[in-house]
Design a protein around this nucleic acid. Structure first.
Length: 828
RNA sequence: GCCCCGGUAGCCCAACGGCAGAGGCGAUGGUCUCAAACACCAUGCAGUGUGGGUUCGAAUCCCACCCGGGGCACCA
């Protein structure tokens, strides 16, 4: 493939040397540095950002796609006259580097920074218009110093705290995981089955922002992919309901349950407490304690995966105590079961088997009563085994009787509870606090010192950053506690408060903390007075366009939104949503399946670039499909892209008019198409319909080829105008060939800095249009008419047409629909 | 089970409620060639997943279903 473009030169049509062109323009761009963002520019500012990569090896096809798409937008904005901030960096803390370090007996930084250099070189080759002066790495002490600073600020505000609770534990990576990192009961990263451990860990109080994380989504919802918005809403999981207090014998405090159906309180026939909650252990009667403990043992052995199987039969144990229904005074048995979750709501529920399927399944398993209190017209759940959850008439429900509407029933029930002081309307969220501690080495150290007499002491700001020690190789082997705990020279310190012997917190932060604020730092990467310069951030504002993979639909995007809101509340920035618009690109697959080593279907980016050139690969990725769709590499044709680019390039050599020739008076048809293409391309880029934009450029190339060969000829100024337009439009996608064409057309570099071509509205007006005449909705004739024709004239023309008359065949015309100048429909 | 998104030609994909086809891949034929590759030219009978409905007119809007992808899921 590679040699095709250099051999047989005499017999081949003219082609350009892809490799030489790439080398040439890399040097020119290096020298001219056309993409540096000027903080002080008077131009309107735009911030374009693509998710920064983790440096594992070289770039792959997925990176190639996201960068190509992102670059189209950033380059387009630049041509439209905006001052564009378009930075790049690395999310460079993380486990792969640590595992490599153990394997190779080295420091994780070695692997990390070597890969960063590899990726940086690939990005340069890939022709991306980044402002390299703003490059950052989250593993640099200058960066993580501010991660630590933010942690301490969050802690001051009560938003970072430590508590002991059962946490997700990955036995393979030997670290805890956030809820978001557990997928179907397995570690999101390595796939190992996650177990539970009771550990004291650091959390960010994301729950305090649950409501705003939900409602602020509305601000960006129409510029974010639907599925991301939905995924975040699902994840936050807001529900409205009530807390209801049940007095329990032998306990001073009532037990509070959370329910979304307080209106069914009269149908409650038992209560269920999460078996693994402290409450269950506390409530259980002496007589039932052995049975309870046996049950607890049984469910602890079950993995999350088993627990998650929703079709599993219900299990549980009677705790041997009773609770009192606050509205009826009825005594209800209290059970413990694993179908009630300890960490959702209050960890206890009132069971209304008639109107909740899970409760009904449980009631049937243990022969507990089922009492219908809402008559929906469906069969009685006690008989059918199917709980009814819809609207209906309330029965046996005291003051609710007579109501027929669920919403009314719920609000009345809450009134009753509130009047009696035994319950209150409330809102509940599925979202949990963000567990941020990790028992690994290659991450940002938590800047806390544990002192036996002073407790948790923050590291004083002037001692930040708390830098990682020089551990390597076997020192980093996972052993269930952070490798830092064993580094005694590092961990043993004097307490900053009392000066006594103390220990550093030896955990590191989840790497998602690092990436929750990097986009803010890019506005002032060298700033030393804080994580970012608030003035610069005010200048640039929130990210106008974020581009990235949707595997982060919940994780990174939710965390970054949380950080932004907290910083807003701290008065450090003036927006509440970090990413105004989000473009989520699909995945590059091969032969219908995800690329993987085991399937042997991987496509190596470097090899593709060697074979077809950067431009052809970029064009292929942009043209393949709408950006959100997956691309199957087996369905696309980089060689086809390469052919097209050669065709486009060849045009630039055909132009014989001089640079600067006035196109006025050039071939009207070609000029019209050129200007329509410019207009459409702008609209298509703004709508992120890059594949269609490329198709339009292809059309223009085809039309220009025709004009040169069999039309107005190469000397016509319209040809120059068309070819210059092709170069400018292509510069968004294929910068190398665009520069080469631009230069060949007699212009100075770089085409990337040329303003977007002006559209002449006069050229958009068509000389004539084809009007379609339908009879009964079927096309019977076409008329060439003036675009300004009025309805009556068009109707008359249509009815006079011989083909139309033939189609009408003398039938009576009942109605004529006219949409001048394009359509007439005659109804008979 | 609930919630999103999508089904158009062999394939990837276009089409303000108005001619089903813009672009590409592949295929086929031709020009060039001793032959081939390259290049160039030409060739599109799918009626838009299925069934209803609204409309003068539906790929497009509405309803139901089927298929594919994604999210949530014992969350009370």
């Amino acid at each position: 493939m590679t040699q095709d473009r250099t051999t047989h030169a005499e017999t081949e049509a003219a082609t350009y040397d892809v490799v030489a062109t790439e080398e040439k323009w890399q040097r020119v761009w290096e020298e001219l540095d056309p993409f540096r963002a000027d903080d002080d520019s008077p131009r309107e500012k735009r911030y374009a950002l693509t998710m920064f990569p983790y440096p594992s090896g070289d770039l792959h096809m997925g990176h190639a796609e996201v960068f190509a798409l992102h670059d189209v937008i950033a380059r387009y904005w630049r041509m439209r006259g905006f001052e564009v901030l378009d930075p790049m960096g690395w999310d460079s803390f993380g486990l792969p580097a640590e595992n490599a370090a153990i394997r190779n007996d080295e420091h994780p930084a070695t692997y990390t920074y070597a890969n960063i250099e590899t990726q940086a070189a690939s990005m340069r080759r890939y022709g991306l218009a980044f402002d390299w002066s703003r490059r950052l790495h989250t593993s640099d002490p200058e960066y993580y110093r501010w991660t630590q600073w933010l942690f301490l600020k969050f802690r001051e505000r009560g938003l970072a705290y430590r508590r002991k609770s059962p946490v997700n534990w990955c036995p393979n990576d030997q670290t805890v995981l956030a809820n978001e990192q557990v997928v179907d009961g397995a570690c999101e990263r390595c796939g190992a089955v996650v177990t539970k451990r009771d550990l004291t860990q650091w959390y960010f109080k994301t729950t305090e922002y649950a409501e705003r994380l939900l409602t602020d989504l509305d601000q960006v919802a129409d510029r974010w992919p639907n599925r991301v918005v939905t995924a975040q809403r699902n994840w936050i999981g807001r529900s409205e309901g009530a807390h209801v207090d049940f007095a329990v014998e032998g306990r001073e405090q009532p037990v509070t349950v959370y329910t979304t159906r307080p209106d069914t309180l009269f149908g409650a026939t038992f209560m269920v407490v999460a078996a693994d909650a402290d409450l269950a252990a506390e409530l259980v009667s002496d007589a039932q304690r052995p049975a309870y403990e046996a049950y607890l043992e049984e469910i602890r052995r079950a993995s999350d995966i088993e627990r998650l199987a929703t079709d599993r039969p219900k299990s549980g144990v009677d705790l041997g105590v009773t609770a009192t229904n606050p509205l009826t005074g009825e005594r209800l048995p209290v059970w413990a079961s694993d179908y009630v979750l300890a960490d959702y709501g209050t960890g206890a529920i009132m069971a209304v088997p008639a109107h909740d399927q899970r409760d009904l399944d449980f009631a049937r398993a243990f022969d507990l009563p089922v009492r219908r209190v809402v008559d929906t017209g469906e069969p009685d759940p006690a008989e059918s085994g199917v709980a009814t959850s819809g609207d209906g008439a309330y029965v046996s429900s005291g003051e609710l009787d007579g109501l027929t509407d669920k919403a009314a029933g719920i609000s009345r029930a809450i009134e009753l509870l509130e009047e009696r002081g035994t319950g209150t309307g409330t809102v509940n969220y599925r979202l949990r606090d963000w567990l941020l501690s990790r028992q690994r080495f290659w991450g940002c150290p938590i800047p806390i010192i544990h002192c036996p007499s002073c407790g948790e002491v923050p590291v004083p700001e002037d001692q930040l950053p708390v830098e990682l020690p020089e551990l390597k190789g076997a020192d980093l082997k996972p052993r269930g506690v952070s490798p830092l705990a064993a580094a005694s020279e590092w961990v043993d310190v004097a307490c900053p408060t009392c000066g006594g012997a103390a220990k550093r917190d030896s955990d590191t932060m989840d790497t998602f903390v690092d990436s929750s604020w990097y986009f803010l730092r890019f506005t002032s990467p060298g700033y030393t007075e804080g994580p970012f310069d608030p003035e610069k951030l005010r200048e640039w504002g929130a990210v106008d366009q974020y581009v990235g993979g949707l595997e982060h639909a919940v994780l990174h995007l939710l965390y970054a939104r949380f950080f932004t809101k907290v910083l807003h509340d701290m008065g450090m920035l003036d927006f509440v949503e970090p990413f105004e618009a989000l473009l989520g690109q699909g995945v590059v697959v091969n032969q219908g399946r995800k690329m993987s080593k085991s399937l042997g279907n991987g496509v190596n980016l470097g090899e593709q670039l060697d074979a077809f050139g950067v431009d052809a690969v970029r064009l292929t990725l942009v043209f393949a499909s709408p950006p959100e769709d997956n691309i199957d590499w087996a369905d696309v044709s980089p060689s086809g892209s390469q052919k097209f680019l050669q065709r486009a390039w060849r045009l630039s050599g055909d132009v014989t008019s001089a640079a600067g020739t006035d196109p006025t008076g050039g071939d009207a048809t070609l000029r019209s198409q050129t200007h329509r293409t410019i207009r459409d391309a702008a609209e298509l880029v703004e709508g992120h319909r890059f594949n269609v934009m490329v198709a339009r450029v292809m059309e223009l190339v085809n039309a220009t080829r025709k004009a040169v060969d069999t039309g107005c000829g190469p000397a016509d100024p319209a040809v120059r105008e068309a070819v210059e337009t092709v170069a400018q439009l292509l510069s968004l996608v294929t910068p190398y060939v665009a520069e080469e064409m631009w230069e060949r057309l007699g212009h100075e570099p770089t085409v990337a800095q040329v303003a977007w071509p002006e559209v002449d509205p006069a050229l958009l007006v068509e000389q004539s249009v084809t009007a379609v005449v339908q009879v009964q909705g079927k096309v019977k004739a076409r008329l060439e008419v003036d675009p300004g024709i009025d309805g009556e004239a068009l109707e008359a023309l249509a009815l006079a047409d011989a083909d139309v008359q033939r189609a009408l065949d003398g039938r009576e015309v009942r109605k004529v629909v006219v949409r001048a100048p394009k359509l007439v429909n005659i109804v008979v």
